[in-house]
Amino acid sequence: MDRQIRVMVVDDHPMWREAVTRDLTEAGLDVVATAGDGEEAVRRARAVRPEVLVLDLNLPRLPGVEVCRQVVAQDPAVRVLVLSASGEHADVLEAVKSGATGYLVKSAGREELLDAVRRTAEGDPVFTPGLAGLVLGEFRRLAAEPPAATAAPQLTARETEVLRLVAKGLSYRQIAERLVLSHRTVQNHVQNTLGKLQLHNRVELVRYAIEQGLE
């Protein structure tokens, strides 16, 4: 049985919302709340503080990207996995810019969804195949723009090494195996790096690494 990952499910279609909730619950995850519109989602997320928010983009009363922006602003520790019917590139990039750490299309199977939620809880960026390259490509494009002049924080050699592997898209487990470290040690290095760089999640970390030419 899984560690009790606290999950909140947001979707305006009751049948879909109930089906996702049932799948997650049966797999041993803890669905602490659900919501059917954007305003309700922001309110409930503030009250229950989920680890992972499974979020549809097409919501009444407040769009999904705005829900994502507000929820992450009020609790930077929350990780947002978008689960959307749209695979449109503009929607994906907008979701990531608003703070989502993953994006899955609704055609994904049950096991794919469960794996995505678990990996999102661990801090991995999770994208439907084909979309990860799009996001990395956008980060590279942004990195080509002139950066604002800021003093670079001092990272240790090990933190820089871990950051380089994060930018290559490796999971924490893969990084741990490559560097012969424990999974927990890799997570600690990433958390320290996030703190030094004043970043909130792994997606922002990948973008920073690319901007610094650490790929």
Results as ranks from 00 to 15, higher is better:
E39T: 14
V105Y: 07
G36M: 14
L113T: 03
E40K: 09
A108L: 06
P146C: 03
E39I: 13
P50T: 07
A73F: 02
R44M: 13
L104D: 00
L29E: 05
V65S: 04
E122R: 14
A85C: 13
R17D: 03
A149C: 08
V92P: 06
P63V: 11
E112V: 09
T101Q: 13
G137C: 01
V31C: 02
P60M: 08
T34D: 10
D124V: 11
V32M: 03
R118H: 10
T25A: 05
R119I: 06
R17A: 04
A148R: 14
P50G: 06
A116Y: 04
V96E: 05
K97C: 08
A85F: 10
E111V: 14
Q70T: 10
P125S: 09
A41I: 04
E122M: 14
T128D: 02
E18K: 13
L83F: 15
A108N: 01
R140A: 12
L24G: 02
V82G: 00
D56C: 04
A41W: 01
A77E: 11
E111L: 14
A90I: 15
P76H: 11
F127I: 05
E122W: 12
L134I: 01
G137P: 01
D124E: 15
G133D: 02
A33L: 02
A33T: 02
P129Q: 01
L29C: 10
A85V: 15
D37C: 09
L131K: 09
E40N: 08
T21V: 02
D91P: 08
R61I: 05
R119Q: 13
L142W: 15
G64M: 01
A85M: 15
L57F: 02
V65I: 15
V54H: 03
A132Y: 13
G109K: 09
Q74I: 08
H89Y: 13
E39F: 07
G102S: 07
G102N: 09
L113W: 03
N58F: 14
A35I: 07
L114G: 01
A148C: 08
E18A: 15
G99I: 15
L62T: 06
R43S: 07
S98L: 09
K106G: 00
R110F: 06
G28R: 09
A77C: 01
T128K: 08
G99E: 11
Q70S: 06
V67W: 03
A19K: 14
Q70W: 08
R43M: 10
R44A: 12
T101C: 15
L55W: 03
L53C: 02
L57Q: 00
A148H: 12
Q70F: 04
E122T: 12
G130H: 05
L131V: 13
A132M: 10
L59I: 07
D23Y: 15
R140V: 10
R79H: 07
S107M: 12
A144R: 15
D56Q: 07
E138S: 09
G133A: 04
A41H: 01
K106I: 02
A100K: 13
L93G: 05
V71S: 00
G109Q: 11
V42Q: 00
R119M: 10
V135L: 02
E18V: 06
G133F: 00
V126W: 00
T150K: 12
E88Q: 12
R46E: 11
T150Y: 05
V42T: 00
F127M: 04
L24H: 02
Q74R: 11
G137K: 04
A27T: 11
